[in-house]
Design a protein around this nucleic acid. Sequence first.
DNA 1: CTCATTTGAGACACCACTGTCTCACGTGAG
DNA 2: CTCACGTGAGACAGTGGTGTCTCAAATGAG
Lengths: 198, 198
Amino acid sequence: MRGTTHDSLVGIAAMVLSANPAASMQDVAEEAGISRATLHRRFANREDLVFSIARLAISEIEEISAHIDERQLTGLAAIEALIEVLVPLAPRFGFLMSQYCLESNAEAVELSQQVFNKWTGWVEEGQRRNEIRVDLPARWVVSSLHGLVASVYDGVREGLFGQRDAPRLVRLTLLGGIATTPFTHQSFQPVSNTRSSP
Amino acid sequence: MRGTTHDSLVGIAAMVLSANPAASMQDVAEEAGISRATLHRRFANREDLVFSIARLAISEIEEISAHIDERQLTGLAAIEALIEVLVPLAPRFGFLMSQYCLESNAEAVELSQQVFNKWTGWVEEGQRRNEIRVDLPARWVVSSLHGLVASVYDGVREGLFGQRDAPRLVRLTLLGGIATTPFTHQSFQPVSNTRSSP
DNA sequence: CTCATTTGAGACACCACTGTCTCACGTGAG
DNA sequence: CTCACGTGAGACAGTGGTGTCTCAAATGAG
């Protein structure tokens, strides 16, 4: 019988590659306690493995998103809830962002677009209800969420922040920014930064 | 005579590796219009090349930081000015963030720490003057700046946002967040998200 | 017990990149 | 012109990962 289920094997691979995106199939196999041959029997390519991890990530994230929908959260509240559950996922799936091979995989692109579109919809709803500022593209809000989650994960790995603080940092920063007074528009006038002489 | 100066060669390499971090020395040489042999004559290793790019990046960023200091900007104003000049640098140096080989290079770590510490100092000054919220670690503010710059660069590459909009998006989001009303604290109560049964 | 299936170990060819070396060519200085 | 020097082209061995294959051992079902 198979000692490890498909999903648990994919999960282990996710952890290994997340810790070191350049890890070899050998490394993954060792960590999973199986031989390289067996790993290749289950995943033809490295690309196949990475894609399987991506599918697992997407399915978990879809489940999360569905759960937020079930609770009938929309707009800002949905984004808040999303932060809370998304941050703990970064240590396993964060590395997927830098996997160029996924960009050429139509299915992976399709699946992730679907999720991002749902989130973008939440943001747009928040903008309609005037909970979220309308001078930002909804898609940018989703992008900045990505960026902050990635940053906080890096920081946690480097020991700069505690894991428990991570969601709070992202939440406060994304939702409220860093300024104490409401920041509305261009309080900074850039000087002529076109110095032609180096 | 040398057709390309050291710095311009490093600059070309920065662009090539930024477009594709997995580009080979061959690719870099071709793009620079020189042979692989000559490239190896100037940079012993790939690591050497990457480090040279890092040094160029740091020197440009240090110059930028010094310029902000000269204008006697501190606190929030310094961060604002920083965003403005940092965003256009992302297309050339953004890939350095994901270069693990730099993490094991003492000099590179030293140099970047120096710059980040200066920025962190600006944030702390802003916190003392109550321009920047004090419930965020100063170091996190710098981290989130990184994250947002990386995100906006990705978005621009994907064609989601215009290059001209990029600094504005980062500025508005980092400084003011995405919420319309001042966001202070935990308006969201996470439900028990420890469902033991999958 | 017996047999079918799965596994681990290892061999294998293959590939792409790296770093070194040699040598002939072209150019510029003297 | 002559010579020194930098360069391009290409050969070369070495490296590390990949994907396939074979075979013997282990495992589990009947």
